[in-house]
Amino acid sequence: MLNLDENTKVRASAARVMSRQRLFDLGRGFETFFTRNPDTNLFEFTNGSSGNPELDPFRATQFDLGYEYYMGNEGLVSITGFWKEVDSFIVTNTVPVFVNDQAGGRLGPVQLPENGEGGRIRGFELSGQYVFDWGVGFVANYTFSDSTSSSFNDFDEGLPIPGVSKHSANAQIYYQNDLFEARTSYTWRSKRYNGNFGFNDGDVSRSLGRWIRPYGQLDAQLVVHVSENFDLTAEVVNITKEEQSEYLQFENLPFRYNSGPRRILLGGRFRF
């Protein structure tokens, strides 16, 4: 860290990082699903999912360079550039697998995690925060991440690292005093690659990219300080009931849909 003056700092860092695999991805068995054919009254294989005990941990070498300007007691504006050389990551692919069934067996789509062959993430983050004397404050940031990897399918090559959106942003505004705290936050991210879907087209194997559509979510929280040791809390998650969905390669080819219910949580918090 370098202090340019009382309010300005420059930070640089380099690190070699590693994160372990999800135990569920490593140890999950081969789960298969069957459906009854009404014409033959036999159960036929439809699809499945599997773990992979040979998954590597996430490994990367990363570099960051940031500029920070501080204002008042809790004000900050900063920009940080980053470069990550990713040696290994995990991607979820869907591949055709032959499974025996009562009708003699058939090929069906099986979803399983596999090792990616590495990639790169470059980008920057802009952030700012400020608190006014009368109790209102805000925090906001925007991140641009340009990622590439060795992943490919029938339509694309050099695909992004799974789960990395090119654009993401979040903002929070709040008010707090001795009696209560109220916060509203919004998070948003652009579309992101989520692996490949493989299937057989006659004697030919096809592969399409799975993409999660852009998604934004609005949440709110209220905390009332009843006493020095007890708070009442209320939280509303996904106020606008935003839905999440996934498509195959083309935006007009839907693949998966998750409804977006609004959740209301009420509780209490003790401090001892």
Rank of each mutant, 00 (worst) to 15 (best):
I173F: 07
Y174M: 14
Y174P: 03
Y174E: 12
Y174N: 13
Y175S: 12
D178H: 11
D178I: 11
L179Q: 13
F180N: 03
F180R: 03
F180V: 09
E181T: 12
E181W: 08
A182G: 13
A182M: 13
A182Q: 06
A182L: 15
R183P: 01
T184F: 07
S185L: 09
S185W: 10
Y186W: 14
T187M: 09
T187D: 10
W188F: 15
R189E: 10
S190I: 09
S190A: 07
R192I: 04
Y193F: 14
N194R: 15
N194D: 15
N194E: 15
N196E: 03
F197W: 02
F197C: 02
F197D: 03
G198W: 09
G198V: 07
N200E: 12
N200Y: 12
D201S: 15
D201H: 08
G202T: 10
D203G: 13
D203V: 07
S205G: 05
S205N: 10
S205Q: 13
R206I: 08
R206H: 00
L208K: 01
L208F: 02
W211T: 10
W211L: 05
W211K: 09
I212N: 11
I212H: 09
R213Y: 06
R213M: 12
P214W: 10
Y215A: 05
Y215R: 05
G216I: 13
G216P: 12
G216L: 14
Q217T: 12
Q217P: 00
L218C: 08
D219S: 12
D219L: 10
A220Y: 08
A220F: 12
Q221M: 15
L222W: 13
V223W: 05
V223T: 15
V223F: 10
V223Y: 08
V223Q: 13
V224G: 12
V226K: 07
V226W: 09
S227C: 06
E228H: 09
D231R: 07
D231P: 03
D231I: 11
L232H: 01
L232A: 08
L232W: 03
T233V: 14
T233W: 02
T233I: 14
T233A: 09
A234C: 06
E235V: 11
V237N: 07
N238K: 02
I239D: 00
I239E: 01
I239F: 02
T240I: 04
K241H: 08
E242N: 07
E242Q: 10
E243C: 00
Q244G: 02
S245C: 01
E246M: 11
E246V: 04
E246Y: 05
Y247L: 00
L248G: 01
L248S: 01
L248N: 01
L248P: 00
F250T: 05
E251H: 05
N252D: 14
N252Y: 06
N252I: 01
L253D: 04
P254R: 06
